[in-house]
Computed example of a mutant assay.
Amino acid sequence: MERSYKASMFSDESIFRWLHPLIAHVPLQEIDREMIRLLRDKKVQSGVRSSTVNRMLSLLRAVLNVASCEWGWLDKPPFIRLMAEPRSRIRYLSRDEAVKLLHELPEHLSDMAAFSLATGLRRANVTSLEWAQVDMHRQLAWVHHDEMKNRRALAVPLNQDALAILASRLRRHPRFVFTYKGKRINQTSTAAWYKAMRRSNIDNFRWHDLRHTWASWHVQSGTPLHVLQELGGWRTYDMVLRYAHFSADHLAVYAHNFGTHISLARTPLSDAPVTSEFVRRR
Rank of each mutant, 00 (worst) to 15 (best):
V99H: 10
V63M: 14
V66D: 15
K181T: 06
W234G: 02
L64R: 06
F258V: 14
H208M: 05
S216K: 02
H145K: 15
M1K: 11
A155E: 15
V63G: 01
L264V: 12
D32C: 06
T188Q: 03
A191W: 06
I15L: 13
V177W: 04
R3H: 13
L38W: 02
H218S: 04
E130Q: 15
L22I: 13
Y254V: 11
I202V: 05
S8P: 05
D135S: 14
S88F: 00
R81Q: 11
R198D: 09
H261W: 11
L241S: 05
R49D: 05
N125M: 02
L129E: 03
R122Y: 02
T127L: 03
N186R: 11
I165Q: 00
D111A: 12
P86S: 10
L93W: 01
A272R: 15
V240R: 05
H144M: 11
G233D: 11
N186V: 12
M83C: 07
Q160E: 15
L59A: 02
H212S: 04
H144R: 15
W71R: 07
R242P: 01
D203P: 00
G233S: 09
R172S: 06
Q187E: 14
G233A: 09
A153K: 10
R55P: 00
L22D: 05
D271Y: 04
R280D: 13
N54L: 07
S247V: 04
S200V: 10
L140V: 09
K183N: 09
N159F: 08
A244Y: 08
S263K: 12
L163G: 00
S4L: 10
I15M: 09
L251V: 10
